[in-house]
Structure formats: structure tokens, C-alpha cells
Design a protein around this nucleic acid. Structure first.
Length: 429
RNA sequence: GUGGGCGUAGCUCAGGUGGUUAGAGCGCCAGGUUGUGGCCCUGGAGGUCGCGGGUUCAAGUCCCGUCGCUCACCCCA
């Protein structure tokens, strides 16, 4: 490694091969978004620090890529898109027809120690429906995310969405005697359930949430099963019954869309961010080696918290880093071998003006054309043509030019024929 | 933020117990003559061995620090 300038840690260069992968992912994201009727938006990559401090929760605030600018403003590179969305919509949501379907592919920044799949910068596909509280909006959002992955070539054997509902969890906690003040503490324990020893979880539910041993045991057994007998266990609780019905409807909608094989109920999912209020989901690599590819859910309070008028909302974020790694493992990235339609070979300096003329005429018609920038031997020029992945080579020599002709060589078959120069430009296939 | 591992040419890596001008393969560049590529042959460029100290007659090789990468924790995308 030469001295001089080094890339900042956690940031990436995108040489053509890498850029091709990124462009491919972005194209699919945008195409799928539009298929679902979402419109693209963006905001500034730098925002006032306050936008995040007040809302995002301490975990994120500790990772903000923030500093003071020359105008003495405390600013931060955006660590997530949702606050910007809320800020933008706070100003104009009233004049927009509901539901608002917006998506974005912002580059986001977090100042944290980098690791595989976790950098200081990444691109994230954000899709949100704002202004609709019907559960169909929740289903729509997960469907977009799943179709994005499906369009990239991942199947239900590669990835799965684990879905849960904070309202159902809250209702269950109430039914088991956990008060509102302890709800978030309970979520914290639930979030760790699958990584922690059950005995330890029971202790934490007792000590940190104040549940009785029986209550803790019952909660654990409820969460371990599917949706099975949840409402049967609490026949009198309307909140439980209602939340359960909504979750069932949600799953039924995804099944109706043909995405049922991707979806799995798992009440242990609560998501880290504090602002979620309803159905939440995370999409994982089935083989589990990688982290979550995507996470999202309903956040009906956020707009009020940011100072706007209350608006129900549901959305997700999908990062490009882990996703691209996964696609690479599954050989789902297009090969980035560059190629050109034509490589023009002037035999000697005499033919160069005609070569330039021909190249330009073809380029104007949308063909990709290159030629050697120096006059070299024909053999050398053919080497370069091959190296650049030219599909065809056009040889211009004195003998052919005299007749207004050129030699056209197909580089894959090796076949050669004489062609009329004008016809070549007019109707190249 | 805490702990472990690693750091030699653009890439992948060799370089027992410290000893002269640091190597290979791939890639790159130039030739193998004047009108034909992907093979082959020949030659070449490219490294202050991450950086800075220290031990030693002598360090890529040992010690310390630092930076970077990486894994786990934390947390999340």
C-alpha cells in the first residue's frame, strides 16, 4: 500500500465491478417500488442534530456521525431516513392525497466500529405508506420488501420474514399483569429471548419487569408457540383478540399475494427502535449466518413526536451491505464484464479519419464503439478489441475503403465478411 | 466502547530457530516487424515488508505503541 491518501474507515469505493452490483440492486429496488405505486423522494444527507437526538433513542444517538459546522450549528449525517421523511411530510402531508406512498434509496451514516456487514456508510431502501392505518398497508409494505428480494433472485428457501405485533405483545403483557411502565423493559427481555438461556430470561422477567414466576413462565410458553391458542388463553381480553385477528388477517393477505412461504409468525421479534407501535417484521437469511437484511413495521406516533400532525405510518429499511453479500454468495449478481458493440481498426494512419467518422456515426445511433487511441499494428488493435470485450471488429484498410467497404469480423464466431460502410451504419443489427 | 486474530508487490500468498541486493503465481506494460484477437514465448515496471519507536553487530522475522482490517460482545441495517 503506497503512502498518500487512504480511504476513511467504514467507507467504500465502487470500482466498476462493485458499482455494477450496486446499480443492479438499485434498479430492482426502484422497479419494484414503482410496480407498487411508490414515488421516489430524497432529502439532504446532512440534518440538524436535534432531528435525531429527540426521537431516535439513545442507541442511535451514540452512533451519530455528527459535528459542528462552520456556522456553529450542530449537525449530523443522516443515520436513518425516517426522521427526514417525517420532517418533509410535516410540512406538506396535509396537501397530499392519502395514503402517501413514497420510497427512497438514501446513503446513511453511522459512526461506529466497522465490521463485516456493518460499515459507517450504507445505502438503504426505504419504503413507507403514510396516512393509512388499515392492516392492508402493513401487508403491502412487507410485500414490497419480499418482492424486492424475490426480484433479486432470492427465494423462500433463502430468506424468511419473521413477523410479530407490538400491540399483541402489549395486550398479552397487560393480560399477564404487566403495567404500561414496564412494557419497554419487557420488550427488551423478549428481544433477547432466542439468544438467552430460558432460565435467565425468566429471572430477568421477574427482576427487571416484576412478573411473577408463573406469569413469566406463561409468557415464555406463549411466545414459544405460534399464534395457536393465544386468544383461547385470554377469552375475556378484547385487546388480545383484536390484535390476534389483525395479525391473522395480515398473514392471510400475504398468503393471498402468494408470499405466504416467506412469512413466519414469531412473537419474539420486537425490533430495537423505540418508535414502533404495531406489526413489526425482520427479514433474515435462512441460513442465519448473516444479520437481518431488512426490518420494518408500523410507527403511528412518530409524526406527532417530530412535531407534525398525527399520521399513521408503516415502512421498512433494507440495507445494501448484507444484501449484496448474500446475493454474491448465491451467485445472483450479474457479471460486470464490460463490452462494446464495435471496435474500429484503421489499418494505417491514412484510415484514421474514416475510422473516427464511422465510430461517431455509430455512436450517434446508440452503438457503443471504441478504437485504439494510438496507431498500432493491426494485431495489437485486435488484442485490445478482445480485451475490451468487443463483439465485432470493423477493419478499415485502403483496399476496402476504395470501394466504400470494410471488413466486419464477429469476435465470438470468428466469421468475417465485407460490408458496405453506409449500410453498416444504416441497419446494423 | 470491550476483548481475540491478522497486516509482505494491484490481487492471492511464500519467506524454519533474526544474517548479505525480499520471492512466486495471476494481473499490468512492452516486444515476438510492416493487415487479424483470446494460447504461447521473452523482457519490464511495481514493495521504505501498515506506520513509529525499542532490543541487537544485524529485524519482514523479537518487544512496545499506533493505525488499519477482521471475529466475538454491544447494537443494529
Amino acid at each position: 500500500m503506497a503512502k498518500g491518501f487512504r480511504r476513511l474507515p467504514g467507507f467504500r469505493d465502487f470500482a466498476p465491478e462493485d458499482f455494477a452490483a450496486r446499480a443492479h440492486v438499485f434498479e430492482v429496488w426502484r422497479r419494484v417500488s414503482r410496480c407498487y405505486g411508490f414515488a421516489e423522494y430524497d432529502g439532504p444527507p446532512l440534518e440538524p442534530l436535534d432531528l435525531y437526538v429527540e426521537k431516535s433513542g439513545r442507541e442511535i444517538v451514540g452512533q451519530l456521525y455528527s459535528f459542528r459546522d462552520k456556522g456553529e450549528r450542530d449537525v449530523s449525517l443522516r443515520p436513518e431516513m425516517t426522521p427526514s421523511l417525517a420532517r418533509i411530510l410535516a410540512e406538506r402531508s396535509r396537501s397530499l392525497p392519502k395514503p402517501i406512498r413514497w420510497f427512497s434509496v438514501p446513503q446513511l451514516f453511522r459512526y461506529e466500529r466497522q465490521q463485516r456487514g456493518r460499515l459507517r456508510e450504507h445505502f438503504q431502501w426505504n419504503v413507507d405508506i403514510v396516512g393509512e392505518e388499515a392492516v392492508a398497508a402493513d401487508a403491502e409494505i412487507l410485500a414490497v420488501a419480499l418482492d424486492g428480494l424475490r426480484e433479486l433472485g432470492l427465494t423462500d428457501t433463502d430468506v424468511r420474514a419473521r413477523v410479530s405485533d407490538r400491540r399483541l405483545l402489549t395486550a398479552l403483557l397487560r393480560a399477564l399483569g404487566v403495567g404500561e411502565a414496564q412494557t419497554l423493559d419487557a420488550f427488551t427481555v423478549i428481544d433477547k429471548l432466542e439468544f438467552e438461556d430460558p432460565e435467565r430470561s425468566r429471572e430477568r422477567l421477574a427482576n427487571e419487569v416484576g412478573m411473577s414466576p408463573e406469569g413469566a413462565a406463561e409468557l415464555l410458553s406463549l411466545l414459544a408457540g405460534g399464534l395457536g391458542d393465544v386468544s383461547a388463553r385470554f377469552p375475556g381480553r378484547a385487546d388480545v383478540t383484536e390484535a390476534e385477528a389483525r395479525l391473522r388477517e395480515y398473514v392471510a393477505m400475504l398468503e393471498a399475494m402468494g408470499l405466504g412461504a416467506y412469512v413466519e409468525l414469531d412473537l419474539r421479534i420486537v425490533r430495537g427502535l423505540a418508535y414502533y407501535t404495531g406489526i413489526v417484521f425482520e427479514i433474515f437469511d435462512r441460513r442465519r449466518g448473516l444479520r437481518a437484511i431488512c426490518g420494518g413495521g408500523r410507527y403511528d406516533r412518530l409524526f406527532e413526536l417530530v412535531g407534525g400532525s398525527p399520521l399513521p405510518a408503516v415502512g421498512f429499511g433494507m440495507g445494501d451491505v448484507v444484501l449484496t453479500e448474500l446475493l454474491r454468495e448465491h451467485a445472483l449478481l450479474p457479471d460486470a464484464t464490460r463490452s462494446v458493440d464495435y471496435y474500429v481498426v484503421p489499418v494505417s494512419a491514412e484510415e484514421r479519419p474514416r475510422a473516427l467518422e464511422l465510430a461517431h456515426a455509430l455512436r450517434v445511433r446508440g452503438r457503443s464503439v471504441t478504437y485504439s487511441l494510438r496507431q498500432q499494428s493491426v494485431g495489437k488493435q485486435f488484442k485490445m478489441a478482445a480485451a475490451q470485450g468487443a463483439r465485432r471488429v470493423i477493419v478499415l484498410g485502403p483496399a476496402e475503403l476504395e470501394r466504400g467497404m470494410a471488413v466486419l469480423r464477429d469476435m465470438t464466431s470468428g466469421e468475417e465478411c465485407d460490408v458496405d460502410l453506409e449500410e453498416l451504419v444504416e441497419d446494423d443489427r
